[in-house]
């Protein structure tokens, strides 16, 4: 067993343990964890089977085997980032739709809370937007 094998195995095990920790803390959903566990498996394969890189370089016709490694890593990272951008786009439009719905529900709630007959009920004035004033300035204002 070479040093490289040991380093590869430690790295793979560390990645898997990190992912398990994130899942246990509910910071990472399983479907995203799968991708990273596959990545850890990849690290493990290249760590144990040291000739894998040469095989890959031969198959793809890359003269310098380490370049093949960079290629694989780069493709993986680009795909992950693309996937993240797609997810982010979906989430931000969902977020916006939720904000709109909340505003509409909030308005409807305030309108219906005023009484049975909406035509002659007294409008309740909207409270002002909450303000965050630093404590020292608030105390100064109260003293005046």
């Amino acid at each position: 067993m070479t040093h490289l094998t040991i380093v590869g195995m430690i790295l793979a095990v560390a990645i898997v343990m990190g992912i398990i920790w994130l899942i246990r803390r509910r910071r990472l959903q399983e479907r995203y964890a799968i991708i990273w566990i596959c990545a850890a498996a990849g690290v493990l394969v290249f760590g144990i089977w040291t000739d894998a890189l040469d095989v890959l370089a031969n198959v793809t016709g890359i003269a310098y085997p380490p370049s093949a490694l960079f290629l694989v890593v780069a493709i993986f990272l680009v795909l992950m980032l693309l996937h993240n951008s797609v997810t982010l786009s979906r989430l931000s439009s969902q977020n916006e739709a939720l904000a709109q719905r909340i505003a509409m529900l909030d308005e409807a709630l305030r309108r219906s809370g005023g009484g049975e007959d909406s035509s002659d009920r007294v409008r309740e004035p909207l409270p002002p937007a909450p303000k965050v004033i630093p404590l020292d300035r608030r105390r100064a204002a109260e003293r005046e």
């Binding site: 904000a99 709109q100 505003a103 509409m104 308005e107 409008r123 004035p125 909207l126 002002p128 937007a129």
Partner: peptide
Amino acid sequence: ETAARASAAGARVLRMP
């Protein structure tokens, strides 16, 4: 005070969160 002023002027107000 945008929401309060608009409401005082008689408009309905949608407040985005």
